[in-house]
């Protein structure tokens, strides 16, 4: 299977099996991604969108009290 041009397989220095592998780095990266998603979502919805009024509202208005 190994081949000179397949860097991926020639550089292998150890074999890590399923039981001993713990993707901790992936967990860290995905947590960071999660936090970015949440922060950006809140920013986009509450600042960019709701701050971008006027906005289309329901014809039956209950907003008067709130606005």
């Amino acid at each position: 299977m190994a081949s000179a041009t397949e860097t991926g397989e020639t550089d292998q220095v150890r074999e890590i099996g399923h039981e001993e592998y713990d993707p901790v780095g992936t967990a860290i990266l995905i947590t960071i991604y999660f936090l970015i998603l949440v922060l950006l979502w809140v920013f986009m919805y509450f600042v960019e969108f709701l701050g971008n009024g006027p906005t289309v509202v329901g014809a039956v208005l209950t907003v008067v009290g709130l606005a």
Partner: peptide, 24 residues
């Protein structure tokens, strides 16, 4: 996203990568 990154991390660690993010 998780499965693919975890697969890459597996490769990086088999190639000698270490640490929380040093394997990158």
């Amino acid at each position: 996203a998780f499965t693919v990154v975890a697969s890459m991390e597996h490769g990086a660690r088999q190639r000698g990568g270490t640490g929380y993010l040093g394997w990158l």
